[in-house]
């Protein structure tokens, strides 16, 4: 195990891009965990005397419509966005792993019924699905997490199901079944641990798109309740001012791009390293 880990580490770190992006991501994680350490101002304090002021030495990223410091709002927004996206993906991946492995392992009618539901979810335009959930249960952070999570359940279910089916063919599982090992036990002890690399890769890629989903919902006015910032909401709210006060939407947009890009590159790196073909 430890030699395998070392091999993985060596391979992953061979690419300098992987190192840089991992560091960037770790930096943003720190920002998310300790926003009060980084933020120069209270992100909620309004100032009617200096609203929409361009970047300056006092406000590095300028101020928004209400005179709130954009840098500070971005810092808290990173926390909000990363929290929402990660919780949504945790929720989706747990649900998706359970659904996918059960479906893949049992096959037959169970698989058929589950997959028809998954197909139907896939065929549902995702933004409208999220809109329904938020409209039904209210715009709170918890409901936003559920709404984004539900979009990703079918994606995880399908991926996990695919690998579960191929793992099922393996000799050790066939023999475990023949000696009468319980299905639930096989799924937990044999199937799920063996799909970990697929799981890790799809976790990272979907995590990055979940950050973008939050942004899209923010653009449609379906974000977290104000005044708490998330990056997506900030970009969406500032969009009307792209011509008159571009910094309001440009900076949070850039930060989203940097975070998502670094996660994507780390994800690609992980995929390359974990892929047995390489």
């Amino acid at each position: 195990m430890s030699s395998e880990y070392r091999k993985f580490k060596r391979k992953f770190l061979k690419n300098p891009l992987n190192i840089i992006c991992s560091l960037i991501f770790i930096f943003f994680l720190l920002v998310a965990f300790f926003p009060s350490f980084f933020a120069p101002y209270n992100p909620l304090t309004m100032d009617p005397d200096s609203f929409m002021s361009p970047p300056s030495s006092q406000h590095w990223f300028g101020t928004d419509q209400f005179g709130r410091d954009i840098l500070s709002r971005i810092i808290y927004g990173v926390q909000g966005s990363l929290f929402i996206a990660s919780m949504a993906i945790v929720f989706a991946s747990i649900a998706g792993t359970i659904i996918g492995s059960v479906s893949g392992y049992f096959g037959g009618a169970v698989d058929n019924i589950i997959m028809r539901f998954i197909d139907a979810m896939f065929a549902f335009p995702s933004i409208i699905l999220a809109l329904f959930i938020i409209a039904l249960f209210g715009a709170t952070i918890r409901n936003l997490i559920i709404a984004i999570g539900i979009i990703y359940i079918p994606i995880f279910s399908r991926t996990i199901r695919g690998s579960a089916i191929s793992i099922k063919q393996n000799l050790y599982i066939v023999s475990a079944r023949s000696i009468g090992k319980k299905s639930s036990k096989i799924i937990l002890t044999d199937i799920i641990p063996n799909i970990s690399s697929i799981f890790i890769v799809s976790f990272t890629t979907n995590f990055s798109t979940a950050i973008l989903s939050e942004a899209s919902l923010g653009f449609l006015g379906l974000g977290v309740p104000p005044p708490y910032p998330t990056l997506g909401r900030m970009v969406g709210d500032g969009n009307n001012f792209l011509l008159s006060a571009p910094w309001i939407t440009l900076f949070p947009g850039l930060i989203i791009a940097v975070i998502v890009l670094s996660i994507n590159i780390v994800g690609d790196g992980l995929r390359d390293t974990l892929d047995p073909k390489n």
Binding site: M46, F66, I134, G221, P226
Partner: peptide, 30 residues
């Protein structure tokens, strides 16, 4: 709701009333 700047007005009211010790929760709905 988030149209005609309603949510923006609510945010400013929230900040202004806070100074008088009035706590406002914003319930943003479709």
């Amino acid at each position: 709701s988030a149209q005609y700047s309603f949510d923006k007005i609510a945010q400013v009211i929230q900040a202004q009333l806070a100074e008088a010790g009035i706590k406002v929760n914003i319930d943003l709905v479709e």
